[in-house]
Amino acid sequence: MTRTVYVNGEYLPEDQATVSVFDRGFLMADGVYEVVSVLDGKLLDFGGHIRRLQRSLDELQMDNPLSEEEYLEAHRQLIAKNGIGDGLIYLQVTRGNPGDRDFAFPPAGTRPTVVMFTQAKAGLADNPAAKTGWKIISVEDLRWARRDIKTVQLLYPSLAKMEAKARGVDDAWLVEDGLVTEGTSNNAYIVKGNTIITRALSNDILHGVTRAAVLRFANEAQMKVEERSFTIEESQGADEAFVTSASAFVMPVVEIDGAAIGSGQVGPVATRLREIYVEEMRKAAV
């Protein structure tokens, strides 16, 4: 079945949806995006994603063409039109099509381009990988210095992900100055002595919507959380490790650069956090 996608206010069959070759998202990677998970036909943490979208747009001095209510209606329309039970909705806003290519921002009045589409993913909450955990490698972090803005500049994370796949593992953690920043598309954590450790927010990492929710749930469950940097060596000596993202939720990590984490099995902290996250997100879904 052909998907229905959203392009600048229109709902179109995917094979009829087009964006100009002069769009700055295509020419300059001048755009931002969000990915909202769908469980049982409802949106998870929608408000958090829209707030981060606005922050990303503000940081790039880009106009937001839609209100939160308009984004919500479009997301719900796409769920209905595509019959999505479990899956994802990808949302991208670019600076639009000013005409000829130019490094300088276009004049005021150029309307941003908005694109949204769905991806069906059956059993999102019951991902079997959560029972076995991911194996990851470390690679040097060569991205630009404003990783807190969720831009469409994803070439290096893609290269890192492909290196991980080529080496027979699930993902890579990016390392800068000897310290883990984050995963290719997720935030990174270790657990040591019942303390959850994750890098503090800054321009160096994405301010994960799922990260914020999971840390809130951890605090409510009276789990100790420490926001600081850590090394790969410290990770390898940890009791547990895991990542969080909108699509993976809480995903245990059982191996880093060939070294087993703890027992080499999925641990109780990551397991419990995933259970809490899914339960609480289902309650709050819209």
Rank of each mutant, 00 (worst) to 15 (best):
I137Q: 05
I137G: 01
I137H: 00
S138I: 10
V139E: 14
V139L: 13
V139T: 07
E140W: 12
D141I: 08
L142T: 14
L142R: 15
R143V: 00
R143T: 06
A145C: 13
R146W: 00
R146V: 00
R146I: 02
R147C: 15
R147E: 05
D148F: 15
D148N: 13
D148M: 04
I149V: 11
I149H: 02
I149E: 00
K150H: 12
K150F: 09
T151K: 14
T151I: 04
V152P: 11
V152G: 03
Q153W: 09
Q153C: 14
Q153E: 03
L154D: 04
L154P: 09
L154E: 02
L154A: 06
L155Y: 11
L155D: 06
L155C: 12
L155F: 10
L155E: 06
Y156E: 13
Y156A: 10
P157L: 05
P157W: 03
S158F: 02
L159A: 05
L159Y: 09
L159I: 14
L159T: 04
L159S: 00
A160C: 15
A160Y: 11
A160E: 04
K161H: 06
K161T: 01
K161N: 03
K161D: 02
E163Q: 15
E163N: 06
A164R: 07
A164H: 04
A164Y: 02
K165E: 11
K165P: 08
K165S: 08
A166T: 11
A166M: 07
R167Q: 04
R167P: 01
R167V: 00
G168P: 14
G168S: 02
V169W: 11
V169T: 09
V169R: 13
V169A: 09
D170Q: 07
D170L: 03
D170F: 07
D170Y: 09
D170T: 02
D171E: 15
A172P: 13
A172I: 11
W173K: 09
W173Q: 00
W173H: 12
L174F: 11
L174M: 15
L174V: 03
L174S: 01
V175K: 14
E176Y: 14
D177M: 07
D177T: 00
G178Y: 07
G178C: 11
G178H: 10
L179D: 00
L179E: 13
V180H: 03
V180P: 07
T181D: 06
E182P: 08
E182W: 08
G183F: 02
G183E: 06
G183N: 01
T184S: 10
T184I: 02
S185F: 06
S185R: 10
A188N: 08
Y189A: 01
Y189E: 05
I190Q: 07
V191W: 11
V191P: 02
G193V: 07
N194F: 01
N194C: 00
N194M: 04
N194Y: 10
T195K: 12
T195R: 15
T195Q: 14
I196D: 08
I196Q: 13
I196F: 14
I196E: 04
I197L: 10
I197W: 12
T198D: 10
T198K: 09
A200G: 07
A200L: 05
A200C: 06
L201P: 13
S202Y: 12
S202F: 11
